[in-house]
Each structure stands twice: as structure tokens, then as C-alpha cells.
């Protein structure tokens, strides 16, 4: 039931030490280090002032920063914008930290500040708080970037007016490897949303 064409209005990737928005390089990280250090450097380079950033786990930081990069020059999406994110590793990066804190009965220190991040959809919450999005949320987990799922699901949210715009994509973090790709899907722009197109942009 596709009633109209939708557009990939804008897209952003964070991979290989670079932040890229609509094919333009926004930031290149020259230093070798942890993902955490990389996210801090992006935060500074984008000139963001948002103290809550420092409380986030690294997965949330990545999703947050990609959204910031994506929206910094865009028209601010309204509060009916849906968030449809996905990844492979769920929140395992933080799950491992929590697991370590409970592994030893003699040295047992589970922390609520860590535990709250042991769910992948917390990144949706962080982005929603920042941009006051009060719309649809969904977090999918799949083995690989699933352009078909993201395209089909974004379309149906727009077709049924359950969302005004959709920010969809992939935010994965595992050990020290990260891979982030977000796209705004709306009625504006020149690139028609298709599964092939979304896949192509993800792989560039």
C-alpha cells in the first residue's frame, strides 16, 4: 500500500574516524584511541553544549552525535518525528560492563547509571529528550544493516500518518568497533527512498 514516494532528505555516517553528512566530511579524527575519545572529539568539533552527553554510554553518544550532525543545518523536524533505529550488538558494549560489575561476589558493584544503558532503545530516549520527539519509537536488532526493513517500516509510518518524518538507521557498537548511519526520511528532497538507494548510501 504505497501511496506516495518519500525522499531520503539527508543522511549521516560515522565510520572510519569520520563524520560525513550528505557526502560532505564534517569531521576527521586524526588520533588513534578509543571510540569514547572519538565521540568526545566529535562533540567538541560540532560545538555542542549539552551536559547530559557526558552521562551517556558510548552507544548513545554515537546515536546522539549522528543526529546532531544530521540536524545541525536541517529544518528542525517536528515532535511527530519517528525514530527507527537498528543494530546487531544491541547494548552488549554496556552489558559487558554491567556483567563485569556482578561477576565477583566479593567485588560486587552494579550501578544504576550503567544498568539503565543495558537496553538498545535508550538511544531513542536520549535523542527524543534532546529534540523533544514524542512520536513513534522502534529499535530492531538484525545481523546486518537491513535496508528493506528500514525502508518498508519508514514508509508505512508515513503512509499511515503515524509519523511526520522518520529518522532511521543503524547505530552499532561492539568492543571498540563502531558503525553509524542515519537518514531522515520525509517528503522533502530529491533522492527517492528505495531499499537499493538506502543500501547504497549506507555502503558508501
Amino acid at each position: 500500500m504505497m501511496v506516495e514516494d518519500y525522499k531520503i532528505t539527508s543522511f549521516c555516517s560515522i565510520k572510519d574516524n569520520k563524520v560525513i553528512v550528505d557526502n560532505k566530511v564534517l569531521y576527521v579524527h586524526e588520533e588513534q584511541g578509543t571510540v569514547k575519545e572519538f565521540t568526545k572529539a566529535i562533540y567538541k568539533s560540532l560545538g555542542i553544549k549539552y551536559p547530559k552527553f557526558y552521562k551517556m554510554d558510548t552507544l548513545c553518544k554515537l546515536g546522539f552525535l549522528a543526529t546532531e550532525a544530521l540536524l545541525r543545518n536541517a529544518e528542525k523536524p517536528d515532535n511527530q518525528t519517528a525514530l527507527v533505529l537498528s543494530n546487531r550488538s544491541s547494548s552488549l558494549a554496556t552489558d559487558r560492563i554491567h556483567q563485569e560489575s556482578i561477576a565477583n561476589k566479593e567485588d560486587y558493584f552494579p550501578s544504576p547509571a550503567v544498568f539503565v544503558y543495558t537496553l538498545p532503545n535508550i538511544v531513542l530516549g536520549e535523542i527524543s529528550i534532546r529534540h523533544q520527539f514524542k512520536g513513534e519509537n522502534a529499535f530492531f536488532v538484525s545481523e546486518q544493516f537491513d535496508a528493506k526493513l528500514l525502508t518498508d517500516y519508514s514508509r508505512l509510518l508515513l503512509d499511515t500518518n503515524k509519523a511526520s518524518n522518520v529518522i532511521c538507521g543503524w547505530v552499532n557498537l561492539d568492543s571498540n568497533k563502531y558503525d553509524v548511519f542515519l537518514a531522515i526520511i520525509s517528503r522533502k528532497g530529491n533522492t527517492i527512498l528505495t531499499e537499493e538507494q538506502l543500501n547504497k548510501l549506507y555502503h558508501t
Binding site: L83, V116, S128, I129, G135, N137, K162
Partner: peptide, 19 residues
Amino acid sequence: EASANDANHISGPSRTGEG
């Protein structure tokens, strides 16, 4: 059916039950 986010706090429910 519908889902909605509180856009308020990650671990505490909204004081207004917004979402």
C-alpha cells in the same frame, strides 16, 4: 495502537504521564 516517547527522562517516568 500507538507508541510515544516521553522525551523527558531515560529511567524515570514522566511526571505528567506524557508519552
